[in-house]
Design a protein around this nucleic acid. Structure first.
Length: 442
RNA sequence: GGAGAGGUGGCCGAGUGGUUGAUGGCUCCGGUCUUGAAAACCGGCAUGCCCGCAAGGGUAUCGGGGGUUCGAAUCCCUCCCUCUCCGCCA
């Protein structure tokens, strides 16, 4: 959420930045100036009346204490009541309008973010690793996984539906090995503290990180007694998390952190649940796009002046995992049109998938600056200083399911077996190869 | 799920209708004192919004929402959360 005062005094800039994002300022901002003026006028009017009421009530109290007659004053205040009630309603209504307007405005991209309409305009910042050369036709992971008997999409469809996966044997172990490997790297070498949050959150949390109200249809939400009403955020309803970003960032919702504690760096493994509404027909083969996938997420809370540096470091921490696994990747700086709603600047890491001959997103690292902190009311305060909103950042470190399939495709051998990346061998109990599962006629 | 107790400012903790945004203590900040520190003493210390160039003023907030009243932290309704006991259960 942008600050109302900021929008008021930087309206032209906000409009320009929205156009950069392919958003329509007229649609998002409406007649902002008029709404803002009207809101302030209504509030001033209401508060003047309330001041009058408070003043008179105080005098009533004074008279009554002296056992004098106050009925004339009581009558006068009673007369104010109707006007105040009406003004209150009007002020509430217009304030709600303003809040709704502000909560639907996306964050503004930083100036160094390239202006562009779609992912076509994303800029490749760097490329790492050597694309493997195969003396045979490399296969996509869905063929490899099925032949090895470690990936079972058919039974997943039976027990849960499309876009789910069952992992068997070494497939399941590889997923678990990746989770352990990533968490160990981040906690032991990159300075993150591990957290294991709930996999369900309430709507207040989803508002805090920006998924609600705009992206409700992308989420799974549980059947609670009361449904979801945009604009009303409760602390007792339940939604499956689409990413650990939500529970972890909201850990500090409505808190003021001591500046000395910053930056705070947290790493969390969770499954992630996404409805994938609107992606029908997209990525239907394999496990690229699933309703449930596992992810290790990195989240940081920083002072405003250091968020930029921490963003670079966090992105490097994610890259370090790809490098440790020797998976070729490239780093993309997303253009304005492809940058997420809450982000000011996002790097995507894309891993090379030889089975499909393309780079595919495996991590997304964003700096939200104070956008989420303002929505979630997360502040920091220096000793003796004033409290202010801190900056939040996060990135995948990495998407486990996509790392799993990247390993299958990059480490496949002519006979269809999979070599285990060196760094992962200890996590696989010393095992160096994935061979067809014994008795795996599925 | 049943019964009971409770939710007050960074923390502890007073406060059952009238200058209570809220006594007091602690923490923290500034100052006096001191060679320095501690102690002691003095002062300061919530947030949002509105008016204002500013100084400052107003308004709202005592878990959330609603109600009663001229006036609510205090009374009523409702929801949420925490704790204790019982039941059920991984």
């Amino acid at each position: 959420m942008l600050d109302l005062g900021f929008v008021r005094s930087n309206l032209e800039l906000v409009e320009k930045k929205l156009r950069d994002r392919n958003a329509d300022p007229a649609l998002l901002l409406g007649d902002f100036r008029r709404l803002d003026a009207e809101r302030r006028e209504k509030i001033t009017q209401l508060e003047t009346l309330k001041g009058r009421r408070n003043e008179l009530s105080e005098r009533v109290g004074a008279l009554k204490r002296q056992k004098e007659d106050a009925s004339a004053l009581v009558e006068e205040v009673r007369g104010l009541k109707e006007t105040i009630d009406a003004d209150q309603q009007a002020a509430d209504a217009i304030d709600t309008q303003m809040r709704a307007l502000l909560t639907r405005i996306p964050n503004l991209c930083r100036d160094e973010v390239p202006v562009g309409r779609s992912e076509e305009q994303n800029v490749e910042v760097k490329r790492w690793g050597t694309i493997p050369n195969f003396d045979f036709q490399p296969k996509p992971h869905w063929e490899l996984g099925e032949q090895l008997g470690i990936l079972d999409l058919e039974r997943a469809a039976k027990i849960s539906g499309a876009r789910f996966a069952v992992y068997w044997g070494d497939g399941a172990r590889l997923e678990r090995a990746l989770i352990g490997f990533m968490l160990d790297r981040h906690t032991r070498e990159h300075g993150y503290t591990e957290v294991l949050p709930p996999f369900m959150v309430n709507s207040k949390s989803l508002f805090g990180t920006g998924q609600l109200p705009k992206f409700a249809e992308d989420l799974f939400h549980c059947i609670d007694p009361e449904g979801f009403e945009p604009g009303q955020y409760r602390d007792n309803d339940h939604w499956l998390i689409p990413t650990a970003e939500v529970p972890v960032t909201n850990l500090y919702r409505d808190e003021t952190l001591d500046e000395a504690r910053l930056p705070i760096a947290l790493a969390a493994y969770t499954p992630c649940f996404r409805s994938e509404a609107g992606s029908y027909g997209k990525d239907v083969r394999g496990i690229i796009r699933q309703h449930q996938f596992q992810k290790v997420e990195l989240v940081k809370f920083t002072r405003p002046e250091e968020s930029d540096l921490e963003h670079e470091k966090l992105t490097r921490d994610a890259e370090a995992i790809l490098e440790a696994l020797d998976l070729p990747y490239r780093r993309m700086l997303l253009c304005t049109g492809d940058t997420g709603f809450s982000s000011t600047k996002t790097y995507d890491l894309e891993v090379w998938l030889p089975g499909q001959s393309l780079y595919r997103e495996i991590s997304s690292c964003s700096n939200f600056e104070s956008f989420q902190a303002r929505r979630a009311n997360i502040r920091y305060k220096a000793k003796g200083g004033k409290s202010a909103f801190l900056h939040t950042l996060n990135g995948s470190g990495l998407a486990v399911g996509r790392t799993w399939l990247a390993i299958l495709e990059n480490y496949q051998q002519a006979d269809g077996t999979i070599r285990i990346p060196e760094a992962l061998v200890p996590y696989m109990g010393g095992q160096r190869t994935i061979t067809p599962r014994a008795g795996a006629s599925l």
